[in-house]
Design a binder for these strands. Structure first.
Lengths: 223, 223
DNA sequence: ACCTGAACACCGTTCAAGT
DNA sequence: ACCTGAACACCGTTCAAGT
């Protein structure tokens, strides 16, 4: 997709890279290919970006900067945490094929730190100590990252193929050997049907409720 | 690392690839490089493996097959779930640089399905319904995958650099702008100190306890 | 200051020729 | 049946030459 003559800038290069990834996948991108989309020589990119790795970092930052947390400011901390986790997950909707880029590179840009600072703020305001807040946020990040990986279909995950004949199975299903995997087989129907929203909300709810039990002075705690 | 003359096999090729990744990182591997380690021509590999992608899939499968769940068979379901999650996480210890390969490609091999079947078995035996068991396992997978990503230091995560002078900060710390990130700054010490075991156990405990509350007939539930 | 062609040292993979 | 060199169509990046 040739996007025409125009002043070359870092922003345009990053946007072109993100676009190309979205259209053709991460494996398709190369400095030469991006340059072609921008109508310039491959080497021109190096006036704005030191390397391909740095460009991918910039793509990750660009995607992260699109996270929009909208919370009713009077919402309680549990709803705020939920909203923040959901906003993070929106990456998979907004940039499905860039998600892997985001998830697979460390990112300490302000765009990445902003949602984290916000989450810490929510927890500290809710009465959690600093150390607890950090561990809670780390737990949520791990859960959200893992959910993103599953959602873009790139990680090992608990699903079965939709149809497809498994080469060495007699039955026409993609189910694994019933002798070794009885449960995967008996649950095959449930496994084939996948609802990313429901899956995400299920785990999110578990985590939020468990965190609530942790909070000093909670009304629903067991002790 | 030249590993000498020997009958070329698929297993030797996969092991050589995993080894090379462990020694020099994923970006270092190429069919030519692996072949050099094996003392054969690059093209010889194609007699055993259809493509580089397929070889990386095989590496992921190889790593997954190393998962060893050891549970006291009389342990209750909560301890079993914990042991299973921990076994999964051991990947990061056993194959730190292959972890990204595992986490970044779908894997429906028997080696990958086995721990999943086992986890489902634990939950179903504990009295959870099939649909619930699936969602619980999916939640744990997401959490473990995200934890692996953090542990191998490859994902966006809640940490600060250990030292390193941030170029445009006056203070000699790597802390972000205190005006925009007050909490990240005030918690800088706690953030710099990281304990992967403690982090993992923290979130694992939250999840297990939340799942326990979910179980019909639980003794610690709120309703 | 920014752009660029040619060049270097690599890739994955095909193919035809070897044994 | 397995191996392999040469070749093809690519890579990222350096450098010197252009404006």
């Amino acid at each position: 997709m040739y996007v025409g003559r125009m002043q070359l800038t870092r922003e345009r290069i990053v946007a072109a890279a993100a676009d190309l990834i979205e259209r053709e996948g991460v494996t398709a991108i190369s400095m030469r290919r991006i340059a072609a989309d921008l109508g310039c020589a491959a080497m021109s990119l190096y006036n704005y970006v030191p390397s391909k790795e740095a460009l991918l970092d910039a793509v990750a930052e660009y995607v992260m900067s699109g996270i929009q947390v909208e919370v009713a400011p009077d919402a309680d901390w549990q709803d705020q945490v939920r909203a923040q986790a959901r906003a993070f997950r929106q990456i998979a909707r907004a940039h499905p094929r860039c998600t892997m880029v985001v998830v697979s590179r460390p990112n300490r840009s302000a765009a990445a730190l902003r949602p984290i600072e916000q989450a810490l703020g929510t927890l500290v305001s809710a009465g959690f100590g600093g150390a607890d807040s950090i561990q809670v946020v780390r737990t949520f990040i791990a859960y959200v990252m893992g959910s993103l990986l599953r959602e873009v279909g790139v990680a090992p995950s608990l699903t079965l193929p939709d149809e497809l004949v498994h080469p060495d199975r007699t039955a026409g299903t993609g189910s694994p050997d019933p002798a070794e995997f009885p449960l995967l087989n008996s649950l095959a129907n449930e496994l084939r049907h996948r609802d990313h929203d429901a899956d995400f909300e299920f785990g999110l709810d578990l985590l939020v409720r468990a965190v609530a039990e942790l909070r000093p002075g909670t009304t629903t705690g067991t002790s």
